[in-house]
Simulated assay, not measured.
Amino acid sequence: MSSDQSSNQKKTNQFTIIKDDPNDGHEGYGIGSISLENMSSVIIDPNEDQAFVDMEAMHARSAVERRVKFQSDRDAVPNGLVYWVVWVTVEKGENGPYFAGVGGSELVVDRSIKRAYKSMPEHVKHMEDSLKGKIRVEHMDEHSKKLLKDFLANFEGGDMWKNSTDELKNALPN
């Protein structure tokens, strides 16, 4: 995506922070369901050196995922560009909101042939890990991890980053 296209898009750099329990005071239907209200999706584009929140990734409709047909075989997209959808869960702690869980999932996109690759089981697993407060970024390349770290550390003044665990801070390069 060119910088002109990205500047014309509405920027929604906003993390969702956990809300009240939707089942509070109610029994029966919905009990035991998973709430995604405190999860956001951050797109890491190492090709353009950018990171941005794109909530449409929650429904596989992010700017990167549009207008391509997904393949289950990575070899079907040999000349594709690598992107990451990073599932970020935000919780409230003693000092305020913080990044509690982070899981990076790979996307490979070749716009010239309108094909892309992603592993749905991997995306689901990384979303689940993020919701459980786990940090899963060890499989990401160093440049992408640096972009993610810079984005999180500078997000809205950096308070959420400061409140985050040492595990997250140590998983992402300085």
Rank of each mutant, 00 (worst) to 15 (best):
K125Y: 07
S105M: 07
H126E: 09
A116P: 00
S144R: 01
I113S: 12
G157W: 02
E156Y: 06
V77S: 09
V53H: 02
N38H: 14
K146N: 09
P97H: 09
V82H: 09
N95L: 10
N23Y: 12
H123K: 09
N154V: 03
A153F: 01
G101N: 03
E56S: 14
V108F: 08
G101R: 03
R74H: 14
V77T: 08
S40Y: 03
L147C: 06
N8E: 14
H143A: 13
E65T: 14
T16D: 04
R66V: 15
V77Y: 08
I135D: 00
P22Y: 06
L147G: 02
S41A: 15
G93V: 01
S144N: 04
L147I: 04
D150Y: 02
R136K: 12
S6P: 00
N47H: 10
E37M: 08
S119V: 11
P22W: 06
V82N: 12
R61P: 01
S72A: 14
G157Y: 05
D21A: 08
G30P: 04
G80W: 05
Y98H: 11
V108G: 07
L168A: 04
A100D: 09
T12K: 06
S2Q: 09
A51C: 07
M55P: 03
G25P: 01
N163H: 09
S6I: 13
Y117C: 09
G30F: 09
E48C: 11
D166K: 12
V77I: 13
K132I: 01
R61F: 13
V85H: 00
G80Y: 07
N79W: 06
L107F: 14
P22R: 10
G30W: 05
D73F: 08
P121L: 12
N170V: 09
R61G: 13
V82I: 14
K132A: 12
S2P: 02
K19W: 03
L168C: 05
D166L: 08
E37K: 12
I17E: 07
K118I: 06
V68P: 00
F70R: 07
T89D: 06
G133I: 02
D73N: 15
S119A: 11
M39G: 10
N79K: 14
Q71N: 15
G93N: 06
K19Q: 14
P173S: 11
K69E: 15
Y98R: 03
K162W: 02
I135K: 01
K125A: 14
N174V: 11
K145C: 08
S130P: 01
P121Y: 09
H139S: 12
A100T: 01
K125V: 10
G30H: 07
E128R: 13
S7K: 13
L107V: 05
P46N: 11
I31G: 10
S41C: 14
E94V: 03
D21C: 13
T165R: 09
M58L: 15
E128W: 06
K134N: 12
A63G: 12
I113P: 03
G25F: 04
S130R: 01
E94L: 07
H143N: 11
M127H: 03
V64N: 04
D73C: 12
G28T: 08
K145Y: 01
Q9W: 14
N13L: 08
H143P: 02
V68C: 12
L168W: 01
A171G: 06
A171P: 01
Q9S: 15
E138L: 08
W84H: 06
I43K: 00
Q71S: 15
D73S: 13
V86E: 00
N163C: 05
G101C: 05
